[in-house]
């Protein structure tokens, strides 16, 4: 009974979180001072299209009408909420009249593919190396920690450009842009190899920076905390093998908060990784979100952010639901 109540409460929280987040996002977007209509008119005029001033006035009115930006804010809110519930976000304004769903669908596989794989690889690598390197005495441990501490503060943009400069320019092993398909995309080995080759540099940059940076340092610190606990010292005094202590005591305790963090990280991939996409010319959601916000494209911004909200909320819900399986203390409660 208690378990059912626990699950029920978590699901209600999930739904309310999503609705509240959507409302907050909508309100915040109203404060974005950019107007897609003015941006378009400026674009037409700066590109030398000959408009006489009377035509500009009428064009402005027509664009507001065409983009559905008329009406008061309450009408707009319910219109967007209705679309959100149906997962129909209307037309993108920076690529009008292409539906928002369509341009998100073009980019979602790239984002999910790259970020989910790199998140998992960097999580596994960072946690294992971090825990193993938590012993201070070993030379390799010290070297690994020194590398991690050095890499972590380097701004991602700089690190990415260095990788490009070395591996796409000086030693041209990889193409200058990532994520591109070949001329006739298909499932041939040639296309797959090309796709993997052009994704290696962006993936490597994420894995090194987050794996060797965040995951390594956090798990190493957590492991050291565990190693100071009484139960750990008692396990050593009992004569248990290092391997057993590592698996049953250190890893098990370190992994719990790291699973939560991984869940949230995976949930957050739907907003893309802007810097990765800009630097590596990778066609993901991050750059699209950036352009949509700056262009005042509310439907596209709402669409991507809603996806992100749903992703993070769903990840939190799943974690809440599986936590009893991982942590016996929660199960007991």
């Amino acid at each position: 009974m208690k378990t059912i109540y626990y699950f029920f409460l978590r699901i209600i929280t999930f739904i309310l979180t999503i609705l509240l987040s959507f409302t907050l996002i909508f309100i915040i977007l109203q404060f974005v001072p950019a107007s897609i209509v003015e941006l378009l008119i400026a674009s037409y005029r700066s590109k030398g299209q000959y408009y006489d001033p009377k035509a500009i006035i009428e064009l402005r009115e027509r664009l507001y009408e065409l983009f559905g930006l008329g009406g008061n804010i309450v009408d707009q809110y319910f219109r967007f909420l209705n679309r959100f519930v149906l997962l129909e976000f209307g037309s993108s304004l920076i690529a009008f009249p292409t539906p928002v769903k369509e341009i998100i669908a073009l980019r979602l596989p790239w984002t999910v593919g790259l970020l989910s794989i790199t998140a998992i690889i960097s999580w596994i690598m960072g946690n294992i190396l971090g825990v193993l390197a938590s012993e201070r005495s070993s030379a390799i441990s010290r070297t690994l920690r020194a590398i991690a501490v050095t890499l972590y503060p380097i701004p991602y943009y700089i690190f990415a450009l260095v990788l490009i400069f070395i591996f796409s320019y000086l030693i041209p092993l990889f193409p200058l842009i990532g994520g591109i398909t070949t001329v006739s995309p298909s499932l041939t080995i040639y296309d797959m190899v090309y796709l993997i080759k052009s994704s290696i540099l962006p993936a490597l940059s994420i894995i090194i920076v987050s794996g060797f940076g965040w995951w390594f340092l956090s798990s190493s610190s957590l492991a050291q905390v565990v190693q100071n606990e009484d139960f750990y010292k008692f396990a050593i005094l009992r004569g248990l093998s290092s391997n057993l202590i590592l698996k049953r005591y250190t890893l098990r305790n370190v992994i719990l908060p790291q699973i939560t963090a991984l869940g949230l990280a995976l949930g957050g991939i739907f907003s893309g990784a802007l810097l990765v996409e800009v630097v590596f010319a990778y066609p993901g959601l991050g750059y699209l979100l950036y352009r949509a916000i700056l262009g005042g494209d509310i439907p596209t911004t709402l669409g991507i952010l809603s996806l992100s909200v749903i992703g993070v909320s769903a990840a939190t819900l799943i974690l809440d639901l599986i936590y009893p399986l991982l942590d016996p203390r929660v199960r007991h409660r």
């Binding site: 920076i94 690529a95 009008f96 341009i103 996409e277 010319a281 066609p283 750059y287």
Partner: peptide, 17 residues
């Protein structure tokens, strides 16, 4: 950077200037 809708070659409606 990437064009938002690379398959759209309709330049007579707004939004694709």
């Amino acid at each position: 950077g990437a064009n938002p809708d690379p398959f759209n070659f309709n330049y007579i409606v707004p939004g694709n200037p």
